[in-house]
Design a protein around this nucleic acid. Structure first.
Lengths: 215, 215, 215, 215
DNA sequence: GATGAATGAGTTTTCATTCAT
DNA sequence: TATGAATGAAAACTCATTCAT
């Protein structure tokens, strides 16, 4: 692919290129979500998009490059949606609930994206066979949650517990909500998220339900 | 593969055949755990076992058949280890704790098995691309937990919550413990399991720790 | 490609077209010399020239056409440089020496051109896989040298030898000088050429050195 | 491919494997000699051998591996044929003549091998585009010849000349004999070789023909 | 029982070429 | 004129499977 850099060092892309790239990424997301990472060959992604295989080669430097950009794209989209919901809250419990419910809301409208992302994170490996996005990839996420938990514990809002285990479990619970929604398309994800928020509110030891104005 | 049935209808297998099958399954477990499901080709499994590829073809009807038997084998082993611990308990909370802690104990000695099993369950698909062991596969597990939870709710031992969400989340929490242990080999899985038991004890609303004889 | 003929039958080309063609040919020469014929894809040639692949397609009817014109261009350049040096001489030995030393002089300033030319002559093949510029391509060259040798033999200036073998060998010696200079960039090509001239002067049996004024 | 090492560290190969490998190498030689290195794809080599593409993959680790073994094989064969002829001689001129005439004799019976070898040496490149067997590869050959020349110069058998240029030129002359024989199948290679021997005998300044018993 | 050998389908990638703008 | 975009063929390689011994 051409590589004229604009003065800012950014690749300059034409409109049509942006459209194609987005189309290919969308097709990759759909294909991976439906058939799984291993079965989402470039041929199938191209077929799904109604284009020739070569087009993908033209717009992306290779399969790895496509996947990288896909992950980056989805990650940014999700983060941009979820983070504001969290930052709006001030208490530890509020932030925890916000995190869970925001993801639940996002899943409702972007089921395939979430499934595809999970597929990639669980399967993409380097040449030595090691997971490229293993738990180490979640470290920043875990650290952020732990900090939040510790603050809540200091203030007495939360009970004492192992913050790392709690963080890992919260993330796993959210991921399982996505997977479950994929298996049961009629599943009410928002209700699931709310229920999950209650679950962890109890788990962190806060007196539940009061934040919703109940006596 | 040969399938001469004995008079009782049992498959008759020679000792050497049983040994080979076990050896191959062990090798498959190790290979899948290390390289992931997609990279665990028959060639690599055979190489790891120090045998020729053809041997696998001889003892198993094909790759799918090998994987099926592997899943069945691991599932039985785990179940046989965990179920007694659960049945020993009488209360809902006790059973919940027992389930979590028993799996944690099993993981300690059988990390590769658990990782391989998770790899397969998350990746094995049928010809149409659908997950072979999707959440539907967990239905019996979920149903069992739900029943347990409902009983606890009836008796007042547990608070009211969505039993399905709780079951899905418990299972996800256990699975994440396995994955985390795989990423961080020095992780203390037993401590993790205990912490998880506490977490869910709070989550289901039981007054924690009393079952351990505290006032 | 357009081919509007002028009234005189000459192709009419704009200045800009000539410039572009020269630029592309130069880039092709450099790319082939550096990476070899097989690795000099149009994409790489275009990249090296800082233009788009399409430009090449516009100015040349295809890859083969580009290569043809490249060969023709280089061949003309070299011939135009070398032939005058030869024609200045009158004796067979003088002409032989002039040929060798002139090419040596040309190589000094045009190493890449010579290497690229050799790459093409040795690799370009037709659809049936036959070398397009095989030894048959050298026939005129060989014939010219043979004539020269025969004249020298008639006049007694040269010993009797197989003129064809001598011609083939002279050409090979010259080509090997180019290749050697490519492998060893610090090699003194002029000295090599002079040495080669001496070598063949002995080989054709002339009493050496006398033409340089020695007694 | 399997890799059971014998106690000596040598790969243990079955007879049938040796036969297949030889067959594939022969087919590769023929294909490269006929179509050139770049056009000798594994598919064509397999087709020429009347086998499936996969067979090559089974017996060789990859294209590079096949080519490596091919080069090694041909190089050994040629060396084993030529070296004894050289060592039989005692004088510098005798050895020079022997080298040339021996190769000429070998070419007569193994034209395709020589052409294929030349094709590979001139075209095989590493990932950076550098010739894998450039002139550096000929260094041992050149050094050997230089040593021979210097000895002859010391003893007064040969005139003074640049030994490196002479060595490079001798080798080039031999190679050109092979190429010429490829272009003109009816060419008398033995006569060519003898002529070449005479040529270089004059070139190195020895009084020619005396070693053949003339007064 | 076990193995080496062979096959053909499927994967990613590179590339010359064509075309609309 | 020039370019970006798209195509499809061919390449090397991997792999599950089949088969004769």
């Amino acid at each position: 692919m051409r590589s004229e850099n604009s003065p800012t060092g950014q690749k300059r892309r034409s409109v049509i290129e942006d459209v194609r790239r987005a189309q290919i990424i969308d097709s990759a997301v759909a294909t991976i979500a439906e058939l799984g990472y291993a079965n989402a060959s470039l041929a199938r992604i191209a077929e799904h998009a109604g284009i020739s295989k070569g087009v993908i080669a033209y717009h992306f430097a290779g399969r790895d490059n496509l996947v990288d950009q896909l992950v980056e794209h989805l990650y940014r989209e999700i983060t941009e949606f979820v983070v504001p919901h969290i930052q709006r809250e001030t208490t530890a419990v509020g932030r925890l609930r916000a995190r869970i419910i925001a993801v639940g809301g996002y899943v409702g409208a972007h089921r395939a994206e979430m499934v595809a992302l999970a597929e990639i994170l669980n399967n993409l490996r380097d040449a030595q066979g090691r997971l490229r996005y293993g738990d180490e990839f979640n470290e920043p996420l875990y650290r952020g949650m732990e900090e939040m938990f510790r603050a809540g514990q200091e203030s007495g809002e939360l009970r004492r517990f192992d913050t790392r285990v709690m963080a890992v479990t919260v993330q796993a619970a959210i991921d399982s909500m996505v997977a479950y929604a994929d298996s049961y398309p009629d599943h009410d994800v928002d209700a699931h998220a709310t229920e999950l928020a209650d679950l962890f509110e109890h788990a962190v030891g806060a007196t539940p339900h009061q934040h919703r104005g109940e006596p």
